[in-house]
């Protein structure tokens, strides 16, 4: 029996397609960033399917956010590690940045 709803992968591609005009108007460099965002959401298609949300795009947005936050967390610990190595403290650095 054929399923009636499109699979989560088809749904994802349709949602991505729905932003084709938005993407077209972006600068080339921003287009690539947008592609990256969508690509990152793909790692969570299984979870999105399991969620069975009536508006799957909301789940995809959350998946992008999740990947973004993972990256932020990774970069933060990397920065902290580097700061520790160079003997500086985070607070001092932030004020330095603010000064520049």
């Amino acid at each position: 029996m054929g399923r009636t709803l499109p699979s989560i992968t088809q749904t994802f591609m349709q949602e991505e397609q729905a932003f084709a005009r938005f993407r077209r108007a972006l600068r080339r460099s921003d287009q690539l960033v947008l592609d990256d965002l969508f690509a990152s959401a793909r790692s969570h298609l299984a979870a999105a399917a399991y969620a069975a949300h009536a508006l799957p795009m909301e789940t995809f947005l959350l998946a992008m956010l999740l990947e973004e936050h993972k990256e932020v967390t990774r970069l933060r610990s990397l920065v902290e590690e580097l700061l520790e190595k160079t003997g500086k403290t985070g607070e001092a650095d932030e004020s330095d940045d603010a000064g520049e």
Binding site: T4, H44, L45, A49, A52, A54
Partner: peptide, 16 residues
């Protein structure tokens, strides 16, 4: 209902 369809019309669990 349409909501139940969305919940039940799914295949097997396929993880990335």
């Amino acid at each position: 209902t349409a909501l139940q369809l969305i919940e039940s019309d799914q295949g097997g669990m396929v993880y990335q």
